[in-house]
Write a protein that binds this DNA or RNA. Structure first.
Lengths: 258, 258
DNA sequence: ACGACCTTAACGGTGCGTTAAAGTTT
DNA sequence: CAAACTTTAACGCACCGTTAAGGTCG
C-alpha cells in the first residue's frame, strides 16, 4: 500500500503550516494526491514533499505564487521558465537598487536629525504641459524679480489667470548671473502683447520640496533636492520652478535619469 | 480668506489619488484641515502639501504607514525618530542582503536550466530533538551501511519504532574514510542493549534537498546544498542526515551562519 | 440642467494567520 | 470517552484600486 500523509503530518515533514497547504490546494498550486471521498481528508504522497520544496525555493527568492505556478507548471518549456526567471531577476535587481537608495536616504536623514534640523521631504511628481504667460529677465538679485511679476499681473485680465503662479529660474547666482521668468497659468486665451510671452511649461518629471519665502529656507530646500537627486543619479533637465503657494514655496527641479 | 483645496485639487497638486487621501484620512494619517459640515467635503490647507510630502518620502524608503505615523507624529521626540529610522535601516539592509542572495540563486538556476538539468530545490527546516536508536560504524563503501540498518531494525520491537529512519554521515569519502550511523526514531522507551545506542538527534536548522536512492542523484543533491549554503554564507554544523522516504531520500545538512 | 465634482459603502487582490463550529480517528 | 486530528467558513492584515449609488458645485 502506498504511503500517504494526512495534512498535519505532511505539514510537519515539509515545515509549512496546514493552513498554507489548504491555501495552496485552494489556489491550485499544490493539490493533494488524493482526497478521501467520505471524510474529505486531504492525502499527500511523499513525492509531493519535493514538489513543495520547489515551490518554497521559488517563493524564497521573491517569486509571487502566480509566478511560482507558471514556473512549476509541468506543461511549461524551459524557454518559458527562462523568461519568467529573467523577469524575476529584473524585479530583484530593481528592488536592490531602490533599497540601496533608501539606505542612503535614511543615513542622510539620520545625520540631519543629529543636526536637529527637521528633514526636508523630497517627492517626485509628473506634470502635464501648462499654458502660461511670462516675462523673462536678467536681474542682479532675487528680490528684484518681483518687479516683473507685478508687471505681468497688471497686464493680464484677472479672469483669465489660473491659480498657478511662480518663477522659472534659468540660471542662478552660482553661474555668475541670475535669470528669472515669472509666469502665470492661463485659463483662457489672452491677447498677445509684446510685454509678455505666451508659451507652454513643458510636461516634466519633477523633484519637489517645499520652503518658506525667505532666502535661507529656499536655499536649504534647493540643497536637499540636489542631494536627493545626486543619491538617485538624476540630473537637472531644464529651468527650476518656484511655485507660489499660500505663504510658502514649492520648489521643483525638472529631472531625467543620468 | 484662507486658501482651501477640495480633495480633487489637493490630489492633483500632491500627486496622489483621491482614494489614497480618503484612506489616509480614515486611518488618521493625514486628516483634512476641515470638513464642510453640510456637504462633508474634505478641505485641505496648502501647508498640508508639505505634511503629505513628508509622509510620501518616508513611504518611498520602505516605511509602513504605521511607521510613518509614528515618525510624523508631532509629539514624537527626535530620539524616537532616530530609533524608528534605525529599525527601518536594519530592515532595508536585511532586504538588500536577501535580494542579493536571491539574485545569485536565480543566476545559478538559469545556468542549470541551460544545462537542461532540472534544478534541485533547497529549503530550510527546523527540527526539534528526536529520540533515536542507532548503530555507528565505519564502512568502506556506501552500500555497506545497509548491513547495520538491518541489524538495528531486527533488534528493535516493531511497535516502538517511529516512521523516521535514516543514516547520519559523520564523514564522507572525501575525508579518507566513511562513517555512517543508521538510526530509527522511537515512539516508546526501549530496553537498552549493547548492540545499539540510545540518543537524541539534536535540534537543528537544516538545509534540505531531495534525491533518488542512487549514488549519482544523491551526489547532485549534496552538491546543490553545498552551493546553496556557500551562496548564503552558511557552514555545516554536524553530521549530515539522510532520511528514507518512499523510494527516495531527503538529505539534510545541519547548518549555522558562518 | 448638465457635467464635473464630492460623499459613503463595499468588494478585490496577496498570502496566509487566526478563531469557530463541527465531524473523524485513536 | 477524551484528545488530537480533520473539515469548511469567515474575518483580519496592508494599502489602496475600482465600481456603484447617490448628493453638490458652477
Amino acid at each position: 500500500m502506498a504511503v500517504r500523509y494526512r495534512i498535519g503530518e505532511f505539514a510537519e515533514l515539509s515545515g509549512v503550516s496546514t493552513k498554507t497547504l489548504r491555501f495552496y490546494d485552494e489556489i491550485g498550486l499544490l493539490r493533494p494526491a488524493a482526497v478521501d471521498p467520505r471524510t474529505r481528508y486531504r492525502l499527500y504522497l511523499p513525492q509531493q514533499l519535493e514538489e513543495l520544496a520547489s515551490i518554497l525555493a521559488l517563493k524564497d527568492v521573491g517569486a509571487s505564487l502566480t509566478e511560482v505556478r507558471n514556473l512549476t507548471n509541468k506543461a511549461g518549456s524551459n524557454q518559458e521558465r527562462r523568461e519568467i526567471l529573467g523577469e524575476l531577476k529584473k524585479e530583484v535587481e530593481q528592488s536592490i537598487q531602490m533599497a540601496t537608495q533608501s539606505l542612503k536616504w535614511i543615513d542622510a536623514t539620520l545625520n540631519e536629525l543629529d543636526d536637529s534640523e527637521r528633514p526636508i521631504a523630497v517627492v517626485v511628481k509628473r506634470r502635464p504641459a501648462v499654458l502660461v504667460a511670462s516675462i523673462r529677465s536678467r536681474v542682479q538679485s532675487y528680490p528684484e524679480i518681483e518687479r516683473f511679476e507685478q508687471e505681468l499681473l497688471s497686464e493680464l485680465p484677472v479672469q483669465s489667470m489660473g491659480d498657478l503662479r511662480g518663477v522659472l529660474w534659468h540660471s542662478c547666482a552660482d553661474s555668475g548671473f541670475l535669470e528669472g521668468e515669472p509666469f502665470v497659468a492661463l485659463k483662457q486665451r489672452v491677447p498677445s502683447r509684446s510685454v509678455y510671452d505666451l508659451k507652454h511649461l513643458p510636461p516634466a518629471t519633477l523633484a519637489c520640496a517645499y520652503s518658506g519665502l525667505d532666502f535661507d529656507s529656499a536655499e536649504r530646500s534647493y540643497a536637499a533636492i540636489r542631494r536627493w537627486m545626486a543619491i538617485r543619479g538624476y540630473r537637472v533637465a531644464g529651468p527650476k520652478r518656484e511655485l507660489y503657494l499660500d505663504g510658502f514655496l514649492e520648489i521643483q527641479f525638472p529631472m531625467r535619469s543620468a
